[in-house]
Amino acid sequence: MAFPQPKPQAPQLPRHLLRTIDCQQGAVRAVRFNADGNYFLSCGSDKTLKLWSVSRGTLLKAYSGHGYEVLDADGSYDNSQLCSCSSDKTVILWDVATGQVTRKLRGHAGKVNCVQFNEEATVMLSGSIDGTVRCWDTRSRRFEPIQILDEARDGISSLKVVQHELLTGSVDGRVRRYDLRMGQLHVDFINSPITCVCFSQDGQCTLSSSLDSAVRLLDKSTGEMLGEYTGHKMKGYKLDCCLSSKDTHVLSCSEDGHVYCWDLVEGSLSLKLPVGKAVVQSMSFHPTETRLLTAMEGRVQVWGAEPEEPEEDAMAT
């Protein structure tokens, strides 16, 4: 006898604040989950990069070596390496366990806004305000990038790598997708400075937030707009946007202290998460679970679908 499929669960949203962590490293410029979502990285304006446990909220390691505030970070798939970029125009490759600088790569002419590993952590890609994306080889000891992508006409504000594709968002109002396998560059004109770009989890769509206070979901292959999400405020700051782990919702930071969460298909606002009074600067969605990290000023907040048990909570605090 065939049983009916279990009724699909209603998509859950990270409504509940699980804990708040004061990172004590100045303003948290970016907060990022690691590959499996058990840890997160916080990039501080006091030049440090900190690694935290999500479930406990404890500091595991602080990485210092940057000369100015850290702007973005990423962890490798095997959690053995970290990369971070900073206003001091450098990109640093860290060894997670020892906290030592494996490589410090200079070459950007301006502050480096974003950095990402590729899937196998063989290449670090960094986008800078100088309008270039540089591909750094983590395997060799060369200090020159493998390739410099200088197609952008203004600073790169965000970049993402998935498999053989590189997505960059630039202040010149264009989202560029470099397809390494096809050897093609697709440029989508948005007309407003891009603050953040994302691939959807299924790899079919791109999400881009721009300074005209809109988040747009574009079809990757054709560039057609599938959805536009508005209501939040993004006028002057470089804020993050992301998709939920199951591609059900679109989330974006806002300058009014909330995280906006729209239904991906309908485009309706399904959650307006009050984070605080100041600008929600950065956020990161858990790769598999319904868990959200937000960064406001010096604090990082962890949000979950359901409130945690009190004893755990107590343990965490």
Partner: peptide
């Protein structure tokens, strides 16, 4: 240049987990 980073104001003021 480009989108700015929000000011790190409260980070100085508030200490401890609030």
């Amino acid at each position: 240049f480009g989108p700015k980073l929000p000011p790190p104001s409260a980070a100085l003021a508030t200490r401890g987990s609030t």
